[in-house]
Amino acid sequence: MNFIKKQMYNPFAVALGFCGLLIFIFGILWILVPPPPKSIELATGFPTGLYYQFAERLKTELAKDGVGLDVRATGGTIDNLALLSDPKSGVNFAMIQGGVADVSKYPQLVSIAGMFYEPIWVWYRESTFKSDGGRLQVLGQLKGKRVAIGNEGSGTLALSTALLKASGISESDFSPEKLKPDAAIDQLKSGKIDAVFIVAAAEAPILQKFYSIPEIRLMSFDQGDAYTRNLPYLSKVSVPRGLLSSVFSMTFLSKISQ
């Protein structure tokens, strides 16, 4: 006891004891609150899509801070949600189309930020709608048509299904084709399908392929206001004439990618 009392007045012993206490506290915090990982995995989408390209740019930026980013190509939003929900997948983060995830089904997931708007594009063959003056203005006109609604695992499939349902159209009313974007472009070009749904930012390279197809037009959502009321995660965006590679003005439905 006398030894302890003597050490209490010994500056060196006090300093040594204080250092020991700090080491103990930091050791406990290290166990309970581990440091940020030096390597993370991000689920994106097709390698030709904007999600994947954005992730590649992010990979370069994170590397400057000593953090490695593994970019995983997927079929799209639905696949990404499944990977996030699987603790064995190794995926830490994913890019998700806004409005697709049902919060009640994924209560453990957290949205970090909204990133950019993604218009819903509906491309169609003008000749298919001759009786309507060559124009597709409402989704009800797709009844009896062959339509690509997005591939399995994609947010496009989830969103096109929601839009068609809101329009009172079931899969028995038309011929749905669950195609990947490149396959949909090939079939639209060859005339095997009449229209294609695709959800992508205006900068996405895949859209340039649609522009190059002759006799293909882009739908303007005349009922955009109604859709935004029924599906609150959508926004109406008007694009003035001449802004895109088209000769007419359009109204898009858009959503924020997260």
Rank of each mutant, 00 (worst) to 15 (best):
K165G: 01
G191K: 00
M219H: 06
F248L: 04
M8T: 01
M115Y: 06
A162I: 02
S39Y: 07
D132T: 12
I149H: 02
K88I: 03
I25G: 11
A13F: 08
M219G: 01
L139R: 06
L243Y: 11
F197G: 01
V196D: 02
F46M: 09
L207K: 02
K130W: 05
T128S: 13
I198R: 02
V100F: 04
A148F: 15
L244Q: 01
E61S: 07
I169A: 02
L136M: 08
F26W: 11
I198P: 04
G134W: 14
A148Y: 05
N2E: 11
L243K: 12
L231V: 09
K59V: 09
P35E: 12
P232I: 05
N10S: 06
Y52L: 02
F129C: 03
S220L: 10
I23R: 13
G76P: 00
K192Y: 04
K38G: 05
A162W: 02
I216W: 13
K178L: 05
T156H: 06
K143N: 10
P107C: 13
I31N: 12
P87T: 15
L244Y: 00
F221M: 09
A166Q: 07
D194S: 03
V147D: 07
L163C: 03
I112G: 08
K236V: 12
I4E: 04
W121C: 13
V103Q: 10
E171L: 04
L81H: 14
L157M: 15
K180G: 11
Y9I: 02
Y227N: 08
A202Y: 01
L81A: 05
S111C: 10
K105C: 08
L136R: 13
I206D: 00
